[in-house]
Nucleic acid binder design. Structure first.
Length: 419
RNA sequence: GUGGCCGUAGUUCAGUUGGCAGAACACCAGGUUGUGGUCCUGGGAGUCGCGGGUUCAAAUCCCGUCGGCCACCCCA
């Protein structure tokens, strides 16, 4: 045997045994998104590197150490495989003038792969897939809540249990800057007690220190000022209304002042949903509002809000919770031939059944009837059609129901109506 | 980038003190010349991750390397 080539590190094949679940989850995603009146958008899986630097943020871990960036042959432009879905959608919306006019509204959803260069572990791959939505043009908290409720409905229909929704607000640009200053002021005297990573972050991205799992950081953050105290009146009101609307809609949630999330573009509301059974990486999806992003990427100032939800993690959580997804399966008819003449006959019958829209298959090699039945059983055939010399002579076929074992003789053209 | 655990048949794994590479399940065939699931019999299947070293002899000991899993960091 020749040298084996393996899938690249951190990538996984979705094999035939798994693909029905993926189809189910993607079907649910589309149904829910379209029910909420979102339209599908498909953007390239790679973009100009500058898009992610300006969009996601230079100081984020994702941009600093997790992007797949390269120059295509003979091309001087640097491109990056997308690490998240929002930046590309915003770029496309601006480029195609979907949000160019004042008051423009746009509601889109996407399903597709994202790429991050990381060490793989449970629930973390270098290629993972997300279902996400983005809503542009509405600054009211009703839009934040619509996105959250859409996301929760996606999980509800998937069968996910034991999930937990946390929400927070970092406020608008001014509130965020103010809180950042307050936090730096609070943490600087304790700088030598922080983890090495957080000492670096103190200068670049101090908010990130809040949700560090390092006990040294957690201790240093004890008694830290809350983001809520730095919120402007407008941001305070926005967040209050988000909470009110969520409560009114019957959603259970918890306000978590340490919730920060990894993208710089969030303003005001942000949220995250976690679920059990995922190991250390327990976030199944999260989102937030990004009212400055469109402008910073060259569009006219337009508010936006959205979420991304990891499909691998959802599948993982569902599996650990032993939830059976509603997979769709066609009735299968298996053709068994006894003898060469019968096999030739069955090829013609096979073609006719398929033309009639019936899922059918047969073993092309001349094996014993017993073997053919074994294969039919393994393939979970619902019916088996048996044809041998006597059936050929009579111009009939035998139709066997594999669940009941019942057999009847019918004319070939009657098969479709007898299933 | 850092740490821990692990690489033996398609799969899950056993392999003692270094002494002929095994089991179960799966697969194929037969038992039944035309009938699946249960049962019985037989069969095929391996670069013991890879490379080097020690040894009369290495799956086993040593070194290196690659890969996987889990955790840190961070996120979906």
């Amino acid at each position: 045997m020749a040298q084996q080539i393996q899938a690249p590190r951190g990538t996984a094949d979705i094999l035939p045994a798994e693909s029905p679940k993926w189809q189910a989850i993607e079907r649910i995603a589309r149904e829910v998104a379209e029910l909420y009146h979102y339209s599908e958008i498909r953007t390239p899986i790679y973009e100009d590197t500058a898009l992610f630097h300006r969009g996601v943020g230079e100081t984020t871990d994702i941009v600093q150490k997790e992007t797949f960036t390269f120059k295509p042959r003979n091309d001087s432009d640097s491109i990056t495989l997308r690490p998240e879905g929002t930046a590309g959608v915003v770029r496309a919306a601006i480029e195609s003038s979907l949000i160019a006019q004042e008051g423009a509204r746009l509601k889109v959803y996407y399903i597709g792969p994202n790429f991050r260069y990381e060490r793989p572990q449970k629930g973390r791959l270098r290629i993972h897939h997300q279902f996400g939505v983005e809503a542009f043009g509405v600054a009211e908290p009703e839009q934040d809540v619509e996105c959250i409720l859409l996301q929760l409905e996606f999980y509800r229909r998937s069968g996910l249990r034991d999930l937990s929704l946390r929400v927070n607000s970092l406020g608008d640009r001014e509130s965020k800057q103010k809180y950042r200053d307050v936090l730096v002021e609070f943490l600087t005297p304790k700088k030598d007690k922080l983890s090495e990573e957080s000492q670096r972050r103190l200068g670049e991205n101090p908010l990130r220190i809040l949700d560090s799992k390092d006990p040294r950081d957690q201790e240093a953050c004890a008694g830290a000022p809350s983001a809520a105290d730095s919120l402007s009146a407008r941001s305070r009101d926005h967040f209050d209304r988000v909470q009110h609307l969520l409560t009114e809609a019957g959603a259970t949630f918890r306000v978590d002042g340490t919730l920060v999330r990894g993208f710089d573009y969030y303003t005001d509301t942000l949220w995250e949903v976690t679920a059990g059974g995922l190991g250390a990486q327990n976030a199944v999806g999260g989102g937030g509002r990004y009212d400055n992003l469109v402008e910073s990427l060259g569009g006219r100032p337009t508010p936006g809000v959205g979420f991304g939800s990891g499909l691998e993690r959802l599948l993982l959580a569902l599996e650990s919770q032993q939830v059976a997804l509603p997979v769709q399966r066609r009735k299968l008819v298996w053709l068994v031939a006894i003898g060469d003449a019968a096999r030739q006959h069955n090829y013609r019958l096979l073609a006719r059944l398929r033309q009639q829209g019936i899922c059918a298959d047969m073993d092309p090699s001349p094996r014993s009837p017993k073997s053919q039945f074994k294969v039919a059983d393994r393939e979970k055939a619902d019916y088996v059609i048996v044809v041998g010399d006597s059936e050929l002579a009579a111009g009939q076929v035998k139709l066997k129901n594999m669940a009941t074992g019942e057999e009847k003789t019918v004319a070939p053209e009657q098969v479709a109506g007898s299933l």
